[in-house]
Write a protein that binds this DNA or RNA. Structure first.
Lengths: 106, 106
DNA sequence: CGAATAGTTCAACTATTATCGAACCATGTC
DNA sequence: GACATGGTTCGATAATAGTTGAACTATTCG
């Protein structure tokens, strides 16, 4: 596989609850999702606040979230924009994202 | 550690969202939680419907759920009763369990 | 007490995930 | 075209999680 321009995103109707829960069960991924709830970010801005992490590690977490259907990752010029698939998640799993975002973050 | 009569259960106020999400992210554990939503079960009845699994495997999954704070596992005579910590979860993570239970199971 | 029953814990092994450097791919700029 | 920039993918290794048989603990019953 080589630098595919458009990364694959699963259809809303096929999203699996267990995949979503797993993707959200990692503290750093969950923290990112909380930030994405306030608006899209470019990949570089998805770095955990405070610590720098290698690009490949960040990309791996984005992949996990994307393949679970939690985020969308689309090219935009030379960068990529990462956004929460909020409506899709609300449609498929009503109330789930709201509950997760409302929960104590620690 | 030897056959402790009363297994440890985390306090409601200390439950971590990521631990709960992780515990629920396994299909067989999630299926069990759905069944527990209808009432407590003895451990033997926690077997996945259809396939038999070794006692040790089942016990391991129960431990994961218990340590995350999702279930309670209490001795009752010679058996143990497993139940959902529904109120505790609702108190700590309002709406989460409802959303999970309402979600499509596949 | 001895045996049966119900389940947890231990230890070893397998499988899945996480981490990270290096290679690679597109886009934009000179 | 050459090069810098922004990111993904690959491959290897480390860490974590799942699976299971065997050993062990507690309780009940004869």
């Amino acid at each position: 596989m080589s630098g595919a321009r458009d990364l694959p995103h699963p259809d809303t109707a096929t999203l699996l609850l267990t995949d979503v829960l797993f993707a959200l069960s990692d503290p750093s991924r969950l923290a990112l999702v909380r930030r994405l709830a306030q608006g899209p970010l470019e990949v570089a801005a998805c770095q955990p606040t405070g610590g720098e992490v290698p690009k490949s590690t960040l990309s791996h977490h984005l992949k996990t979230l994307r393949e679970a259907g939690v985020i969308r990752n689309v090219p935009e010029g030379r960068q990529r924009y990462v956004s929460l698939r909020r409506q899709d998640l609300d449609e498929r799993f009503p109330g789930l994202l709201d509950a997760v975002l409302a929960a104590p973050s620690q």
